[in-house]
Design a protein around this nucleic acid. Structure first.
Lengths: 111, 111
DNA sequence: CTGATACTTAGGTCAATACCTAAGTATCAG
DNA sequence: CTGATACTTAGGTATTGACCTAAGTATCAG
């Protein structure tokens, strides 16, 4: 745990770079679910699927607890915010840049 | 070009899942730059670096044009919005869910 | 025309990813 | 206690990803 920011972003974006894992996140937005509930929609062997869950958990996007023989997963919104924060920062930067360009073009036109 | 939404998200998140590529994006927010200008800060053979640029371009995050022997890269904000859009949608969903939970806890307390 | 510059192409290594099957362990229901 | 359920572990394959070196092509400067 507690990796540096770059490694954290690596893991989060990597985790989101797969449609199965994104669908799991989308499903978990509706509430917690067990491994087999999450796996049901996917035509994939269970061990393959649990690997996806492990990727999501390592990235900090979900957390799980085991009670009896079932493991329940739930969203951990914090990690999504890491990705979101980076994107928001970039958006601000290029927005500013587009504004400058706009201003440049405007003053150019005025001459 | 014109892949479906899922494949598009795959490529964008995959492209962002590497610190070198994110730094290139950050650099390009300050304005267009050539291959060698972008490569300079990185201790990496040029062919390795241009592969990173190719990944960014395939994802639609940047575009490039060649004039003479230099190739210039610039940001293409649209693709960032694809990732941003997905994240924003998720955030809305889990925000709503957290609100519901909040409401549930509140009504629980009132009883 | 020649040499330097700015990539580009070809091809190779090594590690990580995404899957699989088969066999294990742990719990619960009857 | 036994069988079914819910994962988990072990181990294998095939593809992709991130790097490298070496050698190519294309422009520009003098």
């Amino acid at each position: 745990m507690c990796l540096n920011e770059q490694a954290r972003l690596d893991q989060v974006f990597q985790a989101l770079a797969d449609p199965t894992r994104r669908k799991v996140i989308e499903r978990l937005a509706a509430g917690p679910a067990t491994t087999s509930e999450l796996a049901r929609p996917f035509a994939m062997a269970l061990p393959s699927f649990t690997q996806h869950l492990a990727v999501l958990e390592r990235a900090g996007l979900v957390s799980s607890t085991k009670q009896g023989r079932t493991r329940t997963y739930r969203l951990t919104p914090d990690a999504l915010e890491v990705a979101d924060g980076w994107l928001a920062r970039q958006r601000r930067l290029w927005q500013r840049r587009l504004d400058q360009l706009d201003h440049f073009l405007t003053t150019l036109k005025e001459q």
